[in-house]
Amino acid sequence: MTDSRTAPYAALLLRVALGILFLAHAGLKIFVFTPAGTAGFFSSLGLPGWLAYVTILWEVLGGIALILGIYARFAAIAVIPILLGAIATVHGPAGFFFTNPNGGWEFLALWIAGLIALALIGDGPLALKPSRR
């Protein structure tokens, strides 16, 4: 049975944590690898380099939307393709465990499960623009 008194705060915690993860990964691409370096990495995978810039922007916008609660249910679903792309190109071939060389896909699968759970649960409290229920 779901505790209706605390479940909304679980949704808030999940929403903010997922948003911070996206901002952290965007920050890694911006400040550590640099956008040009990330574009070069995407190109080395056979992807168009410009897709790196789209990915960074999508991670930033998705992360902000999740943290602030701006259509968070929609944002949660909208950022899943980024993770699926990472699984398909880098982490899937590395195997399941994230400790494998090049990182496996277990962390990304958990991240996707959290995003789906948030989309099902709802925005939680303190959402600036709650999604329709």
Rank of each mutant, 00 (worst) to 15 (best):
F42T: 06
T99V: 12
F33N: 12
P93W: 01
A10R: 10
L108K: 11
A72Q: 03
S131M: 07
P35L: 03
L45E: 09
A39C: 00
T55Q: 07
A24G: 13
G85T: 00
W58L: 13
L51T: 13
L21A: 13
V54P: 00
R5L: 14
I56F: 10
A75T: 05
I116C: 05
A36R: 09
G124R: 14
R132H: 12
W50G: 13
F42E: 05
G69Y: 08
F33R: 13
L120F: 12
A36F: 07
G85R: 03
G19R: 03
A109G: 15
P101V: 03
N100D: 07
A76G: 06
A65V: 02
T89W: 09
I82F: 04
I64A: 15
L18A: 15
V32F: 10
F31G: 11
G124H: 04
A65P: 00
L28R: 12
L110V: 15
G95A: 02
D3S: 08
A72N: 02
T99M: 13
I56L: 04
G63S: 08
V90F: 03
A86T: 03
L13S: 13
L57R: 04
I112W: 01
N102H: 14
G103M: 00
F74D: 01
T89M: 12
G40S: 11
E59Y: 02
G63K: 00
G92P: 07
L61V: 15
P35H: 06
P48C: 01
A39N: 00
A10P: 02
A75D: 01
A75C: 01
P125Q: 13
R15W: 11
D123V: 07
G27R: 11
A119P: 04
A78E: 06
Y9I: 05
L66W: 08
S4I: 12
V16S: 07
F41L: 11
T2I: 15
I121L: 15
G69L: 01
G124N: 11
F98T: 14
A26D: 05
L28F: 13
F74W: 14
I116T: 09
A26F: 04
R132A: 10
V90R: 13
V79W: 06
L128H: 07
R15N: 08
A76M: 04
H25R: 12
A76D: 04
I87A: 12
G103P: 01
G85Q: 01
F42K: 09
N100C: 05
P101C: 05
F107K: 06
E106H: 08
H91P: 10
G124C: 12
S44P: 03
H91T: 07
F42V: 03
A52F: 04
F22Y: 15
L68K: 03
L120D: 02
L45M: 15
F96D: 08
G92E: 01
K129E: 07
L14T: 06
R133Q: 10
P81V: 01
R15E: 06
A109I: 14
I112H: 03
K129T: 09
E106N: 14
I20S: 04
L84Q: 06
G19W: 00
